[in-house]
């Protein structure tokens, strides 16, 4: 079934919004559990940045949808199969190394995406990107430095960050495969397939400094962008959506 132009744009906006929402939820799980107070705050700051970006996309999605829905309807009243986030982002926090590596893979990608979206043909998308790029520049600096610090740190930290790099690698391929709704909205969005070389180049640079091996497997998980997720998303959503599902429309 071919989607209308409006539906394609809506799906793309939800894809972008879902990425931020799901990652923010995962990062929020660190709140009160960070290894030190300073890093606890750092991660929740990043969570609030990406949640803020996500809200802009949901709000715009609601406008495009035009059926009187709000950002909350998209966040709290859709089911797992309707979420279009990368499978990478719903992966459990694991240890600090896993959280940092998930963040680095994503930041490295999003910095490239937002750099392109600044010149999107859609004024609203361009405006969101212009605001987000400053935040993501910082996130990438933060996560890159942690990858280097752990990789080039002690035997234990090196081992853990290398394990995280390998474990999460299979979720990175999906980022560079455009979904149908992206191919139908090129110009508004960017062709993510074109970003892979630069992403790899920057990753190589950071991994070199971190004395880490770049994983060589090239079989990748896919499906998240079209709503086929790992077993973790459903559990995450029950937590995220619990209050609104139990008391629909409640405010506090």
């Amino acid at each position: 079934m071919k989607l209308s132009e409006k539906q394609n744009l809506l799906h793309y906006l939800l894809h972008m919004a879902d990425n931020g929402l799901i990652l923010a939820q995962r990062l929020g799980e660190w709140c009160g559990h960070g290894p030190v107070l300073e890093q606890d705050i750092a991660l929740t700051n990043i969570a609030l940045d990406v949640l803020g970006q996500s809200r802009y996309f949901y709000q715009y999605a609601a406008e495009v949808d035009g059926n009187g829905k709000s950002e909350d309807d998209f966040a709290y009243f859709r089911d797992e199969r309707e979420f279009k986030n990368f499978i990478l982002l719903e992966q459990p926090n694991g240890d600090w190394a896993h959280t940092i590596m998930r963040q680095f893979y994503y930041d490295n990608f999003m910095q490239l995406v937002y750099s392109q979206l600044v010149s999107s043909s859609d004024a609203q998308v361009s405006a969101i990107a212009s605001k987000a790029i400053k935040e993501v520049d910082y996130h990438l600096k933060f996560s890159s430095e942690w990858v280097i610090r752990m990789g080039d740190g002690t035997d234990e930290s090196h081992k853990r960050i290398q394990e995280a790099a390998s474990a999460l690698w299979e979720y990175t391929g999906e980022m560079f495969i455009p979904a149908d709704y992206e191919l139908e909205t090129l110009g508004i969005c960017t062709n993510v397939a074109n970003l892979k070389n630069e992403w790899l180049k920057r990753l190589n640079d950071v991994f070199n400094q971190a004395t880490l091996q770049v994983p060589q497997t090239n079989w990748f998980q896919t499906g998240g962008k079209s709503g086929v997720h790992s077993e973790y998303l459903g559990i995450l959503l029950t937590d995220l959506q619990y209050i609104q599902r139990t008391f629909p429309g409640c405010k506090w």
Partner: peptide
């Protein structure tokens, strides 16, 4: 004051703790 492993991290921690 705050804890950090090196000067770069101290600047970033300060940014997150004291300028948010």
């Amino acid at each position: 004051s705050l804890h950090a492993s090196d000067a770069d991290m101290a600047i970033e921690n300060a940014r997150d703790v004291y300028t948010r």
